Computed example of a mutant assay.
Amino acid sequence: MATLVVGLGYVGATLAGRLLGRGERVIGLDNFFSVDRRTTSLLERHGAFELIEGDIRSESDVVRAFSVEAVDHLYFCAAQASADDSTIPASYTETTNLIGPRIVFEEAARRDVGRIVLASAMRVYGQPLPSRVDESTPFTFQRDLTHLSKLYLEGLAHIIAERSKMPVVSVRLGVVYGVGAVVKTDPRFMTVANRLCWQACHGEAPRLALGVGHLPIVHVSDAVAGMIRAAQIDEPGYSAVNLAGDPVTLRDLAEVVASEASRRGRTFDVPAVGGWKGDAPVVESRLTAMGFAPRVALRDGLRELIDYFLARV
């Protein structure tokens, strides 16, 4: 039996590497829209990894991935993840984030896959976050197609789980940051924390959006570990878990980046705007009762990321 990782981007490639390290047989599916094909070379050197270069929007490509060998676990990490609607065609976002998941989930149900773990986002709760968040917190309005599609993704997963009785776990990730097996080099596809570090290393001034409140944030290593732990939830049907560390304001995040950049001789002036006066929301997670908590400290993760980008300037 094998594990299928759909989407070998920032989270998916790191997850595939972690699973291989645990001795699992891994199949990876990706179309390399926002990832350099060469970044999977380390995975491909592993004898227990098989790459299927294909598109989740193509039924034949999805069937090829499932046909390598019987799949027990499916980790779904594929998405057009950039919220910059001005640079990514809306049609690509819609077909990738809406049609693609349906094709994959329906094939998983036909193949009697043991369980699905999907990467969702805590943005489903809105921005800014409510004062207290747990997995029962209602979803709310979204401002871009990328995050709007997360609402559809979770609804679709719920339908598939109810129809097939297959366990499906949605892992609602905070803003993922840090050095993973794949680190995006195009700022359009970077998360806000990674983009701030990239800007600090390239001499660009930070641009801080107003009104976003506190950001739930999680290191990519913790995101992957949490997804693997979530796969242990053995409940029929659909369930969800939150996965993030302590929320931080965008301004505070930028100031940590500026502090670490300054120690490396880089000037990163954080503008006076962008602060948030409200209290930090309380984020609860079912993973806590399972003994899981994020381990990477924010400053440590940002320091490593800045060093990574500086080595490539």
Rank of each mutant, 00 (worst) to 15 (best):
A254H: 11
R163L: 11
I228T: 07
L15S: 10
A209I: 08
C77A: 12
V256C: 13
R303W: 01
A240Y: 14
G203A: 05
A109I: 04
R37P: 01
A289T: 07
F309K: 03
H202V: 05
E162W: 03
F33I: 02
F141S: 12
C201I: 02
R115V: 05
R263F: 00
D279C: 05
E154I: 02
G274R: 10
D307Q: 06
T146N: 15
L210C: 06
R102V: 01
V5A: 14
G9Q: 05
V313K: 11
Q127E: 14
R22V: 04
E260R: 12
C77Q: 08
L250T: 03
S82C: 03
P138K: 07
T3G: 03
T140L: 12
T249H: 13
M190N: 05
R57D: 10
T95K: 08
F141D: 10
V283E: 02
G211C: 09
D252E: 14
M227W: 09
G155Y: 04
D279T: 04
T185M: 09
V270R: 01
N194S: 12
H214K: 10
L4C: 14
T191H: 05
D300R: 09
S164W: 04
Q199H: 10
I159P: 03
V273R: 15
N31S: 15
M122I: 07
V220T: 01
V248K: 12
T185H: 10
R102K: 08
F189Y: 15
W198Q: 01
F189C: 01
T267H: 10
A161S: 11
A205D: 06
D134F: 07
G12H: 14
T96E: 09
P236N: 06
L51K: 10
T249C: 09
H158N: 08
S120Q: 03
P101C: 10
G245Q: 06
A272Q: 12
V248I: 15
C201L: 02
Y75E: 00
V175C: 14
V313S: 12
D84M: 01
V6C: 15
T288I: 01
A280S: 13
V71E: 01
L51A: 05
R251N: 09
T3F: 09
R286C: 13
P294T: 03
L151R: 14
T267I: 01
L153V: 07
Y92L: 15
V273D: 12
R263I: 00
D85H: 06
R111E: 06
D55C: 06
E94W: 06
G211F: 06
A16D: 02
G12I: 04
S239P: 12
G174F: 04
